[in-house]
Design a protein around this nucleic acid. Structure first.
Length: 918
RNA sequence: GCUCUGGUGGUGGAAUUGGUAGACACGCAGGACUUAAAAUCCUGUGAUCAUUACGAUCGUGCGGGUUCAAGUCCCGCCCGGAGUACCA
């Protein structure tokens, strides 16, 4: 019997399907394990060979855990809402639901070919009403809660209303957009409308006028993590700042918990660090600088209160509310001109062009430490959104302030001894204070603490923690997303009753904004409640649907709850989450926030969603080139190209094998090349290559279907793992896949020779047992450490050794088949049945290493002289240090290397090495 | 700039606590089988020098250091990749 992978794979895929092998239910008698892949957005291009990398790794781990006796939840679904389907709809008029359904079918077909152990009964699609009902539901909950900063927990908005009714804002501990102050009496006298307005200031999901990233090309606003360097991440379109009325989620209230939680989860240090930076906690002081001639203060935030004596001017952000208040009549014109010029600049221009610019307001502040008068400027290097939108400038110790001071000729006063500020600022936080009154002589570290105390003791301000993390803007002016369960009455938002959910996405005639510039939902007919109140026209952003999908998988068909208590208590949280690093500041923060919110409401039992996170590296493309001699239709082979003036041209990697071009296919590729001529080397055309992003335009996309067709799914699975460490980025190079395929054939040939089944019941030899158990040990260690590339080589070594030993004994091969089942499930299932089993290999028991087979009786000691190994010497493993030393010194070869010299020192590491120092 | 990563043969990579650097594969070369090709199998394959056997020297981005012993630890640089960016 031959290794006919195609038949074998189809046969077992059908078997698994027929027998519901991967269906999983709550089973209290077994420990649970939850393995999750980041679910894909089903794009029109289908999967390329890079996508399944993580899925294969997590599948290996799931299957391993199952063999180890765990009840493994391993689901898959689709992040089905998104821009590409909508953009396609705009171009073609095809409903995005149709595009999406088609793409999902294609994804599923591709995934099925690879033999994953997903329980497809649990599939979710974020665009299905059954699913997004719970996205809307969570939003309603967020609207109906506020964040208590004292308890560090979300609380029902009713308790806040009660607080207002009895105490007003007195001793209020609630996260808010704007600090408000009113009495209980004032609150009670307000109209319902006024009260609702105030409550929006506290709700976790709230509507507010915010400065947003508006992307005109996409016709929508984008969240901070969807914008990079002033352009949209999807599509690279310019983004500008605009004030718009938008739904937002008060994720900033959770900043501290999101930060602290990082210490409790097993994620890579680098991704935790990225989140820490994104959250951006900084401890400092909020200080009031009195304004000269006004009964008002300028409030600023600083982490360097110790440098206050060095403050020689103040700077406001152009958008700051202080601007109007502090601009004097004489400066009015100049300030207006400046602010106009700043407004015209896009975010992108601001980043690209960092010229110092600014304008004087005409007003002065009083330095609360030195009592000196200092001018107040406006400049766009100060950000409105951070701190208070105003700063105290310390040019001697801050490079930005320094540049500004130099440009406007403002004084620079150093407050740290011995630093030279004639050329640049001294930003470091070490040294001894000077020019600083009561802080003189202190170290910077001590001065920071002293200054903070001074500030609070003298009523200048208070110690404060600031976060960089902004609230998440939650509105999108698009069609293909979750509708908000919101209607408006007198311009005020109200939530639909939970019984009315889901509010389904309506049909519209065109997927474009309305003529009046309203979002696409403005085109929907009868888009209002039964009473006639209009529904919200925005839809939710991409991260809405992916923020709690891991919970829904636990209980995907529950129509009464997001997840039942029973299912949640059993499955708890994701034990292993596998996906790319690109979601570090988006999905992975939002879903932690969402999860914590649900946790606060007592709806789920864990406050962190993903216990362990593993990030797979990106698979890059490996492009091939041909070299056309300039102005000809002649192509010259790689090693001869330097003799000509050539233009490199990308050539489809699918017509290149081991860098040798298939000339006939190349000619047929494009009519232009039909008559092409070639200058060959050794009768072949050798292509050049480079590592680039895998994309259509580089002609380097490799489709997993083609690999499965040619080599089988098991080969694909093994080869993807064999390429290199899971977490590292690496180029896909189909060269080398033959080796892995050959390995499977070799494994097969331990069972079948010349078409005959040759497995025997003989008792294995010590050597054979050693081969097996060393492999068990290695594979177990590797899987637990996500080192799948080394597992594959361990299997190769094992099979090579067994072939050498001519071992076809059931006692060895059966454990080996179970061992390899997580990696190559189809061949394993086939061979497991060949060995006489009638149930699936998935329900076998993972073999355990018996160390006693690994004990060596002799050790081949490397004998080194001055650290250089000269020869090896087999010695009894039981020999003591002294005996080893004696045996080595008596050895003839040792004498030869010693010559007449007396060794100065002999180091014997038992079981490892001998080093003789001369 | 800052943070995180990584740098080992022609290529992908291995080396788990400092202990024989280059496992395992690819590629290449030679050989066997074959009318021939494919497939398969065997042998060799870091570099340089030497070759009659024994070999010798160098070698993990660069320069130092610790150690009997360094790819691995310490100090200082260089280069690639990713993220982030006026955050006070």
């Amino acid at each position: 019997m031959e290794y006919t992978f195609k038949e074998i794979e189809q046969k077992w895929q059908q078997y698994w399907k027929n027998n519901a092998t991967y269906k999983v239910e709550i089973n209290a008698t077994k420990p649970k394990y939850y393995v999750l892949d980041m679910f894909p957005y089903p794009s029109g291009a289908g999967l390329h060979v890079g996508h399944p990398l993580g899925y294969i790794a997590s599948d290996i781990f799931s299957r391993f855990k199952r063999l180890k006796g765990y009840n493994v939840l391993h689901p898959m679904g689709y992040d089905a809402y998104g821009l590409p389907a909508e953009q396609y709809a705009i171009q073609t008029g095809q409903h995005p639901a149709i595009t999406t359904t088609k793409n999902i079918a294609r994804y599923r077909e591709q995934l099925d070919k690879i033999g994953f152990s997903y329980d497809w009964n649990r599939e979710v699609r974020t665009c299905e009403p059954d699913y997004y009902k719970w996205t809307q539901w969570a939003f309603v909950k967020m609207f109906n809660h506020y964040y208590d900063t004292q308890l560090q927990q979300a609380k029902p908005i009713e308790s806040l209303v009660k607080h207002f009714a009895t105490q007003g804002t007195d001793s209020l501990q609630a996260a808010c957009t704007e600090e408000l102050s009113f009495t209980a009496k004032e609150w009670n006298e307000k109209t319902d409308e006024e009260q609702q307005h105030i409550l929006l200031n506290y709700r976790i999901a709230y509507l507010a006028d915010l400065k947003v990233n508006w992307c005109p090309a996409l016709g929508t606003v984008l969240a901070n993590d969807e914008v990079s360097e002033g352009v949209s991440i999807r599509g690279g379109h310019p983004v500008e700042q605009r004030i718009m009325r938008q739904w937002s989620l008060r994720i900033s209230a959770y900043a501290q918990r999101l930060l602290d939680g990082l210490d409790t989860i097993d994620w890579s240090e680098s991704i935790k660090e990225t989140q820490r930076n994104w959250i951006g906690r900084s401890e400092g002081a909020e200080m009031k600088f009195p304004i000269k001639g006004q009964d008002a203060d300028l409030l600023i935030f600083t982490t360097r209160a110790d440098t206050t004596y060095g403050v020689t001017f103040m700077v406001l952000a152009p958008e700051s509310e202080y601007v109007q208040q502090l601009t004097t009549a004489e400066q009015q014109q100049a300030v207006e001109t400046y602010i106009e010029s700043v407004k015209k600049r896009t975010e992108r221009e601001r980043i690209a062009d960092r010229k110092v610019s600014g304008v004087f307001t005409g007003s002065y502040a009083i330095n609360p430490f030195s009592q000196q008068e200092i001018p107040i400027y406006i400049s766009d290097y100060v950000l409105a959104g951070y701190g208070t939108g105003a700063i105290m400038a310390v040019p001697a110790h801050d490079s930005r302030d320094y540049a500004f001071a130099k440009h406007f000729n403002l004084p620079i006063v150093p407050v740290i001894e011995g630093c030279d500020v004639s050329e640049e600022s001294f930003d470091a936080k070490d040294g001894v204070m000077c020019n600083s009154g009561f802080m003189n002589g202190m170290t910077v570290k001590a001065a920071i603490e002293t200054a903070k105390k001074y500030v609070s003791d003298n009523g200048i301000g208070r110690v404060k923690v600031n976060f960089r993390l902004r609230d998440a803007i939650f509105s999108r002016q698009r069609y293909w997303g979750e509708p908000f369960p919101v209607y408006y009455k007198n311009g005020l938002p109200y939530m639909l009753d939970e019984s009315k959910l889901p509010l389904e996405l309506p049909e519209i005639d065109k997927y474009l904004p309305t003529e009046t510039g309203e979002p696409p939902l403005g085109r929907a007919k009868a888009w209002h409640t039964a009473e006639g109140y209009p529904y919200e026209l925005n839809t939710m952003p991409g991260f809405a649907g992916s923020s709690a999908y891991f919970l829904r998988y636990m209980d995907p068909r529950n129509s009464n709850e997001l997840v039942s208590k029973e299912a949640n208590n059993y499955w708890q949280q994701v034990d292993l989450y596998l996906g790319g690093t690109e979601h570090a500041t988006g999905h992975l923060i939002y879903s932690r926030f969402w999860n914590k919110f649900l946790f606060d409401l007592g709806l789920i039992c864990k406050d962190e969603p993903f216990k362990k996170l593993v990030n797979q590296g990106m698979i890059q493309g490996r492009s091939n080139f041909v070299y056309r001699i300039k102005d000809t239709n002649t192509f010259v082979s790689y090693h001869l190209k330097d003799q000509y003036e050539v233009t490199p041209i990308h050539v489809d990697v699918n017509m290149v094998s081991n860098d040798i071009l298939d000339i006939e296919r190349f000619k047929a590729w494009n009519p232009e090349y039909n008559k092409a001529e070639f200058i060959l080397e050794d009768g072949k055309y050798v292509c050049g290559w480079a590592v680039e992003k895998m994309s259509k335009s580089m002609f380097n996309v490799v489709n997993p279907d083609d690999i499965v067709e040619k080599y089988g799914a098991d080969t694909l699975r093994l080869y993807e793992m064999f390429l290199g460490p899971l977490e590292q980025s690496k180029p896909w190079d189909t060269n080398g896949i033959d080796g892995v395929h050959r390995f499977l054939r070799k494994l097969w040939s331990l069972f079948y020779k010349d078409g005959n089944y040759i497995v025997t019941q003989d008792t294995p030899t010590t050597e054979e047992l050693k081969t097996l158990h060393k492999t068990i040990k290695k594979i177990t260690f590797d899987i637990e450490n996500f080192s799948f590339n080394t597992s594959v080589s361990a299997f190769m070594i094992c099979v090579n050794e067994l072939a050498q030993q001519k071992c076809s004994k059931q006692a060895i091969l059966e454990p080996l088949v179970i061992l390899i089942a997580p990696f190559a499930p189809h061949i394993a299932e086939e061979l497991y049945h060949a060995l006489g089993h009638t149930t699936t290999v998935c329900d076998a028991v993972f073999p355990i290493c018996n160390e006693s087979y690994l004990v060596e009786s002799t050790i081949n000691y490397p004998i080194s002289f001055n650290g250089k190994v000269r020869f090896t010497l087999p010695l009894e493993a039981s020999l003591s240090k002294e005996e080893v030393e004696k045996a080595v010194l008596q050895n003839e070869q040792t004498r030869k290397f010693l010559q007449d010299k007396q060794p100065k020192k002999i180091i014997v590491v038992p079981g490892k090495i001998v080093n003789i120092v001369l």
